[in-house]
């Protein structure tokens, strides 16, 4: 996979200190929001766990890393914008929506049409890791995100989910 190119200010120490002055802080938050989305998109990261080390939040070259407060603030700003969601009340895990659920749904629909899978059946695991989606954006999609995108399609009447005997053979029937 192509190496993500960090912006030059990633090596600027103040970028890693939460700025106390309002205007500066707002700009800093914007820059972090953008960086988080781009980084997650590049590496297909769907969930950031604040309790674990996340490579983006520390820069060993300049020996700086974000404080917990700063991480929570930046992710919270993404949540407020609808581009992320807290997965728990204590704000430990955050789902990053670098592509919105609607966009995911449209992407799946396009894939279905391109591959002649109208009226076809696929398991969720096949969509995530199967040969058909290999090499497309859909490959490796987070299960939570996938289920929610399929539900959007379901509401439009373009797909129907069904449950198998085990959780790993949940399936979907497209009807585009």
């Amino acid at each position: 996979m192509e190496q993500f190119k960090m912006p030059y200010f990633y090596n600027y120490p103040p970028y890693f200190t939460l700025q106390p002055v309002k205007d500066t802080r707002e700009k800093q938050i914007q820059l972090w929001k953008e960086l988080i989305l781009k980084y997650c998109k590049q590496y297909k990261v769907f969930v950031i766990n604040l309790d674990e080390e996340f490579p983006l939040f520390g820069n060993s070259a300049i020996e700086r890393k974000l404080s917990h407060e700063a991480r929570e603030l930046f992710l919270g700003a993404l949540v407020a914008e609808g581009k992320a969601e807290w997965l728990d009340k204590a704000h430990h895990k955050c789902l990053i929506l670098w592509r919105s659920i609607t966009d995911w749904a449209n992407l799946i629909l396009e894939f279905v049409k391109e591959n002649g899978l109208e009226d076809g059946v696929m398991t969720l695991e096949e969509i995530r890791t199967g040969d058909e989606t290999h090499g497309t954006d859909i490959a490796g999609i987070d299960r939570t995100v996938l289920v929610r995108a399929l539900k959007v399609l379901e509401q439009k009447g373009k797909a129907a989910m069904f449950k198998g005997t085990a959780t790993d053979d949940e399936g979907v029937k497209f009807s585009a």
Binding site: P7, F9, Y12, P13, P14, Y15, Q19, D23, T24, K27, Q28, Q30, L31, E34, L35, K38
Partner: peptide
């Protein structure tokens, strides 16, 4: 203290 380069950055161009 550093020069505040952050404040002048244009988010749409910075990346």
């Amino acid at each position: 203290f550093f020069l505040n380069i952050l404040i002048d950055l244009d988010v749409s161009k910075a990346f």
